[in-house]
Simulated assay, not measured.
Amino acid sequence: MQLSTKQIMEIIPHRQPFLLLDTIEELEPGVRAVGKKCVTYNEPFFAGHFPQELVMPGVLIMEALAQAGAVAILSQPENKGKLVLFGGIDGARFKGKVVPGDVLMLETEIIKVKGPVGVGSAKATVNGKLVAKAELTFVVTAPEKA
């Protein structure tokens, strides 16, 4: 199953400039999601990271992986309208830099769920080459009422 940016925004609450997925290329609700982010010179973070050598911050690669995982979790009917929050990042490793012009592929597979807490195995690649990986712990929660 593929999703457009508009369809992604119907599932997760992130919006520009913090929505870090352009499309979902593959989706198995509750199991895994593969997202795509086309990295451009116009990304707001490049203004300060680093003006002399543009590099996507590793923490934003982790966030993009988490957003892919959130799409997998929140696309399940029983989680519609809920939030997915970070519970932890374990074993994060960065193997290469991500620069303007790269197409970042973001794959997160849900490997464990117990109640509202789960773990995703996440990896980011550019042209098939691993650039980052981690185990992401998440918590599914209902949004607070204003």
Results as ranks from 00 to 15, higher is better:
103 V>D: 05
119 V>F: 11
121 S>G: 01
98 V>G: 04
121 S>D: 14
116 P>V: 01
125 T>L: 14
138 F>W: 11
98 V>M: 02
134 A>P: 02
106 L>A: 11
127 N>H: 14
118 G>V: 00
115 G>I: 06
100 P>I: 02
113 V>E: 13
97 K>F: 13
124 A>D: 04
138 F>L: 03
117 V>R: 12
106 L>H: 07
115 G>D: 12
103 V>L: 06
128 G>P: 06
137 T>H: 03
99 V>L: 03
121 S>V: 03
110 I>L: 05
113 V>T: 13
128 G>D: 03
139 V>R: 10
126 V>K: 11
98 V>P: 02
132 A>L: 00
97 K>G: 08
112 K>M: 11
105 M>Y: 14
137 T>K: 14
118 G>L: 01
117 V>S: 04
130 L>H: 07
111 I>A: 04
101 G>T: 06
125 T>Y: 13
114 K>V: 08
102 D>H: 07
100 P>V: 00
138 F>D: 10
130 L>W: 13
126 V>I: 13
123 K>R: 15
100 P>F: 03
133 K>N: 12
116 P>F: 00
141 T>N: 03
114 K>L: 14
122 A>G: 11
107 E>W: 03
110 I>P: 04
112 K>A: 07
101 G>I: 00
128 G>C: 11
108 T>C: 05
118 G>R: 09
140 V>I: 15
117 V>N: 05
129 K>L: 10
103 V>A: 13
99 V>R: 07
123 K>D: 12
105 M>W: 04
136 L>F: 07
121 S>M: 09
139 V>Y: 12
137 T>C: 01
116 P>G: 02
140 V>M: 10
113 V>H: 02
101 G>K: 08
108 T>A: 01
99 V>N: 03
113 V>F: 04
107 E>H: 13
119 V>Y: 10
113 V>C: 06
111 I>E: 08
133 K>A: 06
109 E>K: 15
131 V>M: 03
133 K>I: 05
113 V>Y: 06
118 G>K: 12
109 E>Y: 03
125 T>F: 11
105 M>F: 14
98 V>Y: 06
141 T>M: 01
134 A>D: 10
99 V>A: 07
113 V>N: 03
135 E>Y: 02
106 L>T: 02
98 V>L: 02
137 T>F: 02
126 V>M: 08
109 E>S: 08
100 P>G: 01
118 G>Q: 08
126 V>A: 07
116 P>Y: 06
100 P>H: 06
134 A>V: 09
131 V>K: 11
114 K>W: 01
126 V>E: 08
118 G>W: 08
135 E>T: 08
106 L>N: 00
108 T>R: 05
99 V>T: 15
129 K>R: 15
141 T>S: 12
128 G>A: 11
126 V>N: 06
123 K>Y: 11
107 E>K: 15
100 P>A: 05
